[in-house]
Amino acid sequence: MARILPLLAKVVAVLAVYLVVQAMIMTGVVDDYILITMVTICVNIILAVSLNLITGFTGQFSLGHAGFMSIGAYTTGLLTMHYPTWWAFLLGLLAGGAIAAIIGFLVGLPTLRLRGDYLAIATLGMAEIIRVLFLNFPFTNGAAGLSGMPRFVNWTWLYVFTAGTVILISNFLRSMPGRNLIAVREDEIAASSIGVNAVRAKTLAFVVGAFFGGLAGGLYSSYFYFIKPDLFGFQKSIDILIIVVLGGLGSLTGSVIAAILLAVISSLLQPFPELRMVIYGLILVVVMVFRPQGLMGDRELTFSAMRRLLPHRWREARP
């Protein structure tokens, strides 16, 4: 019973968020403009959570997440343009994730012997190469990109994939291979000496992270029905990294909160387009100067943590 209740609470919370937003969409409280922001938030959550797995939990500094995203975006985009059916859409998401994962594996294996900043620049290079390839492939329409793919993403799909990603990754981190990743982050040599295969752990982090990065790209291309290589440049990778660091390296809930906060700030600054990026930059500097570990540090916002915030007598009343 004691174990079932928190699980039940989580299920209820996840369902409640979905139903409330669904109701708001149906009653028209959430209009198209807000929905676009919400799509951006959800895609960014998936991207940030999957990058956090690589950079925050495994400690491998990656500057190339936009590359994985672009693979998913182009796979889903191309598939749904040629076969505009639901099946093609779902297949595109999975195939996009799978291709990104394979690239993550192929790129990861040789480059993972690099450390720190050398790895960062190698991943950055990989993403740039992917971008240059998409610029030059005969079937991707060059710099103009693809447009006019059918929109299959709605709130339901979006939420299923976003919540699914967060739940899967948080459960993965509590599994044996997931614990290995954290051990590698804490001390690679110590982890190896107690039998953790560090290379396998790092490659696994890249493969899983790349898969969900590709998935996010697929969702993005299907909602915005327009993609071009320049959308997935160095700047995009940096944007994702900013969410992860701002939320806190090694905190999934931190990534979720930061993705939401940054999107809200960004849309609040919409009326001042000239100063928007200046203020955004100022926020980054100020947050990092006063809170260098990010908003959440490496802690998670859990139900038990929230209960600790409640007044004492409430706490007693619950199991």
Partner: peptide, 28 residues
């Protein structure tokens, strides 16, 4: 300088912030 003893990635994000400030102040 205020981040001398912080994790390196925090300083990196600060550097990105400074970069955005310089670029878009000039643009403004």
């Amino acid at each position: 300088r205020p981040l001398r003893n912080s994790p390196r990635i925090a300083v990196l994000i600060t550097a990105i912030g400074v970069s955005l400030i310089l670029e878009y102040t000039m643009m403004y």
